[in-house]
Simulated scan of single mutants.
Amino acid sequence: MTTKRILIIDDEYDIRAVAELALKTVGAWQVSTAASGSEGIAKAVAEQPDAILLDVMMPDMDGIATFQALQANPVTQSIPVILLTAKAQATEKRRFAELAVKAIITKPFKAMKLPAQIAAALNW
């Protein structure tokens, strides 16, 4: 079995660091990170990860705009995306559900359970 590669796109350093550590140690996955939507898109194109963990609320280019850009690009449109959000209200969840995302994980998340949540969402 090949090692899964996941890209974390989040503007908060602490969230990226905690998620990266959990995914590397518990999930035994290769992890790369990006601090903005535009950096994340560039890395997704270059690295072709197996999945993307994408923060919704980011400055400049938010997660929804980033997701739409990923979907519009033939090189990245087939990469599964999981949204990471602090907005857990029903209206936002419905809006996110209308997008073709694989899952929504709410912040704060339990770091040690994150790999299992992602694996379950993606049937890994």
Rank of each mutant, 00 (worst) to 15 (best):
V18S: 03
M61S: 08
A34T: 09
F67G: 10
S32I: 14
I8N: 11
G37T: 07
A28F: 04
E47F: 00
P49W: 04
R16S: 03
L53P: 12
I6Y: 09
L54C: 09
P49M: 03
G40W: 09
S32V: 11
A65S: 15
I52C: 10
S32G: 11
G27E: 09
G40M: 06
V56M: 14
L53K: 05
V56F: 03
Y13H: 13
M61F: 02
V26L: 01
I15K: 04
G40R: 06
A44Q: 08
I41G: 06
Q71F: 01
L21V: 08
Q30C: 00
L21P: 00
M58D: 14
D62E: 08
A44H: 07
I52L: 07
L7G: 02
A35F: 07
L70S: 04
E47M: 07
A46M: 12
I6Q: 07
I41N: 10
D11Q: 05
G40S: 11
W29P: 04
I64T: 05
A22N: 02
V18M: 12
S38A: 10
G27K: 02
I15E: 02
A35G: 15
F67D: 08
A44M: 07
W29D: 03
A19W: 01
I6M: 13
A65W: 02
L70R: 08
A19S: 04
G40D: 12
I41H: 10
T25W: 11
I9G: 09
I9K: 09
T66I: 10
D10K: 06
E47L: 14
M58K: 01
D10N: 14
N73A: 06
Q71S: 13
A72G: 12
L53H: 07
V45E: 11
A17D: 15
Q48A: 12
I64D: 06
K4G: 06
A51I: 00
L7F: 09
P49D: 07
A22S: 15
S38P: 00
E47C: 00
A28L: 11
P59D: 10
Q68F: 02
E39N: 08
D60W: 08
W29K: 01
D11R: 02
A44I: 07
L54G: 04
R16P: 09
D55L: 01
G37C: 04
L70I: 04
Q71I: 01
N73K: 07
A44C: 07
L54R: 03
T25L: 13
D62S: 06
A35K: 12
P49K: 03
V31K: 09
V56E: 09
A22W: 08
L54N: 07
D10G: 03
S36R: 01
A34R: 09
V18H: 00
K4S: 11
S38G: 00
M57Q: 15
T66D: 12
A44E: 10
P59C: 06
M58V: 03
K4T: 05
K24N: 13
Q48K: 13
K4R: 11
L70N: 12
K24G: 07
A72F: 03
G37S: 05
I8P: 04
A69I: 04
S38R: 12
V18A: 14
T66G: 07
